[in-house]
């Protein structure tokens, strides 16, 4: 009995020392090494791909923003975002999805509402949007709630509204969208997309530089 207790204690001691040694390798050495390389070689990316406009930081090109006025291109809905409830000295955005199921009444209602709003907002005096034209990404929330992109179809849909509100020719805004449409990587990886923040920065420059 006594012997087995000593043996167990010895084994647990060895296990603890193994954990501490491996913590040094994988929990201290490894992250510091990667951070060193990252900060030296990819400084901007390692710190969040901050994007500047008019000399100030206006966000990250990777993190989608909400609350654009109708003069600008709109992001996807983000109904899954939360605010922090634990460490409330910060006002962190909590990434997340709605997690509503494909047969959820709540999800159906929110999609109906979003669709009606997209149709209404984007129909101008000489351009009518049909509900069937509204792409899926315009009325659904993304996985992170921080999707920086919209589909080219959703961007196209907004061109007439944006042109009208900014008193720009439709063709000019259309060209802006074309220029900011990124195709699939190597032609087949992922989906074509338009980065909303970068598009809106370019739009503002166009409007202000006129």
């Amino acid at each position: 009995m006594n012997n087995s207790v000593t043996n167990s204690a010895r084994l647990l001691g060895a296990a603890l020392r193994a954990l501490l040694a491996l913590t040094l390798v994988t929990g201290v050495g490894y992250p510091l090494l990667v951070t060193g390389v990252a900060q030296a070689a990819f400084h901007d990316k390692a710190n969040g791909s901050e994007t500047r406009a008019d000399g100030r930081v206006v966000g990250s090109s990777l993190i989608g923003q909400q609350g654009y006025s109708l003069a600008y291109f709109q992001s996807r809905p983000a109904n899954g975002l939360g605010t922090n409830s634990v460490n409330t000295q910060y006002k962190l955005i909590l990434s997340g999805a709605t997690n509503l199921s494909a047969d959820s009444k709540k999800l159906i209602a929110s999609i109906e509402e979003a669709k009606a709003k997209v149709v209404k907002d984007n129909s101008t005096a000489d351009y009518r949007v049909l509900p069937s034209q509204v792409p899926a990404d315009a009325v659904t929330s993304s996985g992170s709630g921080l999707d920086p992109d919209i589909s080219p179809a959703y961007a196209e849909l907004q061109v007439h509204r944006v042109a009208e509100r900014n008193h720009l020719p439709v063709g000019t805004v259309d060209k802006l969208v074309q220029d900011h449409t990124e195709g699939r990587t190597l032609g087949f990886i992922g989906e074509p997309r338009v980065n909303v923040l970068e598009l809106n920065i370019a739009l503002r420059e166009l409007v202000e530089g006129r």
Binding site: R76, G80, A97, T98, N99, L100, S101, A102, D103, S104, L107, I108, I111, E112, K115, S132, V134, P135, A136, D137, V139, T140, S141, S142, G143, S144, D147, D149, I150, S151, G190, E191, R193
Partner: peptide, 18 residues
Amino acid sequence: GPALQLAGGAMEGKEVRF
């Protein structure tokens, strides 16, 4: 699924880039 049919694609909870 009714919600996804209404939206026109299974994009709820999915990112555009993927």
